[in-house]
Simulated assay, not measured.
Amino acid sequence: MEKYTEWKKEIEKIISEVKGQVSVSFYDLDKSTSFSIDGDKKVLSASMIKLLILAELMRQVSEAKLSLSQKITLTDSMRVGGDGILKVLDSGHQFSLKELAKLMIVVSDNEATNILIDLLTMENINALGRNLALKETFLQRKMMDSNAKEKGYDNYTSSDDIALLLRLIYEGKLINEEASEIILDILLQQQQSERLQRYLPSDTKIAHKCGDLDNLENDGGIIWINDRAYILVVLTGAMPNLECRETIGKISKYIYNKIKAIHPLLL
């Protein structure tokens, strides 16, 4: 645990160099040891809430309430802005629930996300969060719902909650082993790489989900160095987006280097 105390202090130094808000959660999956910095702090989740939505989809699939092969037809009423590609497709296209789930995670498609929220229901998604013992993660509005936001509704999480979700996925315990494997496979296909991977080797294996808003950048994932794996979640805000991304990248690079340093065979 002594080395983790040192690591925590060094990360606190990195955080002290910026004026924004940063929370960090680290979990060594080989040693079952962790530390966090403001890990229990509730912050805006941005698209990281999509992890919980994906988990609820897999719960309903596991109970045979839904099938991943089930088709949804795009309609004009589903249109929404922000990230994604569905918004530029013509109505009438059909997608399976698995394809919508991949779009929601891999390219953070907001239209796919809202379709799944309507199908799964916000109530069920939040009930799963409570059942998983997530303390600060809940969904209050659909993606790009400015009216709900103006009324004070938003989506929240904490770095500790995201780290817990990722640990359950890695251990095959998020819903069940099959569901965890499907979720992990989707997270490995993530196409956004400017945060945790910013200063890491381009071939680094990582299963992650990120999110961003104005002056806010979040990322959390399972990172492998050969057969060694660890979880790192860094949530940042109240500073320019580029500074947020650079801060996440610096913290990620520090942890990566430390993991490699204590395991020479991984070099």
Score class of each variant (00 low, 15 high):
residue 185 D to E: 14
residue 193 S to P: 07
residue 204 T to G: 04
residue 71 K to Y: 13
residue 186 I to R: 04
residue 157 T to D: 06
residue 1 M to G: 11
residue 152 G to A: 04
residue 170 Y to I: 14
residue 93 H to C: 11
residue 131 N to I: 06
residue 216 L to E: 05
residue 254 Y to F: 13
residue 171 E to P: 12
residue 105 I to E: 00
residue 112 A to W: 02
residue 42 K to E: 15
residue 96 S to N: 02
residue 33 T to A: 06
residue 21 Q to K: 10
residue 215 N to S: 10
residue 122 M to Y: 08
residue 63 E to S: 13
residue 59 R to K: 13
residue 6 E to N: 10
residue 259 I to C: 11
residue 245 R to M: 15
residue 140 Q to A: 12
residue 169 I to H: 08
residue 112 A to M: 03
residue 7 W to E: 09
residue 134 L to W: 04
residue 207 A to Y: 03
residue 150 E to M: 10
residue 258 K to H: 02
residue 160 D to C: 07
residue 107 V to K: 04
residue 165 L to S: 11
residue 147 N to C: 06
residue 47 S to I: 08
residue 222 I to F: 05
residue 40 D to I: 14
residue 70 Q to T: 11
residue 27 Y to F: 12
residue 122 M to K: 12
residue 179 A to F: 03
residue 186 I to Y: 05
residue 228 R to Q: 13
residue 218 N to K: 02
residue 125 I to K: 14
residue 259 I to H: 08
residue 7 W to Y: 11
residue 263 H to F: 06
residue 32 S to W: 10
residue 36 S to G: 09
residue 133 A to I: 09
residue 215 N to R: 12
residue 25 S to G: 01
residue 2 E to M: 14
residue 110 N to M: 05
residue 154 D to M: 07
residue 205 K to A: 11
residue 191 Q to P: 01
residue 10 E to K: 12
residue 1 M to Y: 11
residue 54 L to V: 06
residue 230 Y to M: 05
residue 245 R to Y: 15
residue 64 A to E: 15
residue 246 E to L: 12
residue 32 S to T: 10
residue 85 I to D: 09
residue 108 S to H: 01
residue 114 N to F: 07
residue 183 I to P: 01
residue 153 Y to K: 14
residue 183 I to H: 02
residue 150 E to K: 13
residue 167 R to M: 11
residue 255 I to G: 00
residue 116 L to V: 09
residue 45 S to I: 02
residue 195 R to M: 13
residue 202 S to C: 14
residue 126 N to T: 15
residue 59 R to A: 07
residue 166 L to T: 11
residue 249 G to Y: 00
